[in-house]
Design a protein around this nucleic acid. Sequence first.
DNA 1: CACGAGACCTGTTCGC
DNA 2: TGCGAACAGGTCTCGT
Length: 276
Amino acid sequence: MPELPEVETIAARLRLGSGDAPPLLGKTITRARLLWERTLVTPGAEEFLARITNQRFREVGRRGKFLIFTLSPDSLLLHLRMSGDIWLEPQTTEVAKHHRLLLELDDGWRLAFNDARKFGRLWLVADPATVLKDLGPEPLDAGFRPNEFYRRLHASRRQLKPLLLDQSFLAGLGNIYTDEALHMAGLHPCTLSDATSLAQAQKLWHSIQEVVREGIRRNGASIDWVYRGGDFQNHFRVYQRTGQPCPVCGTPIQRKVVGQRGTHICPLCQPEPGEG
DNA sequence: CACGAGACCTGTTCGC
DNA sequence: TGCGAACAGGTCTCGT
């Protein structure tokens, strides 16, 4: 489920509260329950449970696809991977099948991490930078500029799609937003990064900005049974639209595999590189 | 350095 | 209806 816009939406809802749930900020953890140990990267389970108890939520943030809970004095980092989600629920709620971590709070609510596929990962650390140090720039950061993007595209020779998915190149894009951005830019996912012109790189930069902003504005995308609350899935241009018409030219969207990921393109708007 | 295969997991959907 | 294959918003490690 979660790429940058989904994680941003989750962070905002936890921070501010949503529906019946109150804001998370200011609550203190009275008890932690780890239901699937492998979710935890560091420290060990015993130390984790002891150390997180009595810490207070001071901020909820995001970096790339990581959720960052600033506690006192530690930080809890969470990566939702493929099927993770996290929300507040009353402590009286029955523990759902795929809950992996419960953080009981001092006001009767609990923070519940739910993750069917068990790919999600947790870190409790003194310094978030130890986990986040290899991440590339934030797409919406004011310091992320088109010319620098062009320079870095040309610093390696890789297919655009796998490069955009590489979190050390750019933080936050996943399969949906990469396919959407490449389509908007009119670039084939197999185009070699150092073969892009300055104009193409600038167009791709703008497309990334636009797609990510639209995703956030629509509270992310809700697909399948995993994530609910977003609307962006109703506005996909190519993602999971195999056989349906391209919104630009009407040509049926094709699905292929690029870098071992399902990839959706318009064969007319995104011509194969090389022959052109 | 760049790429592909396999691993980690469970659930849903599709084809026969 | 049943059953296996394919597929899923991600990332890591290993071999070439």
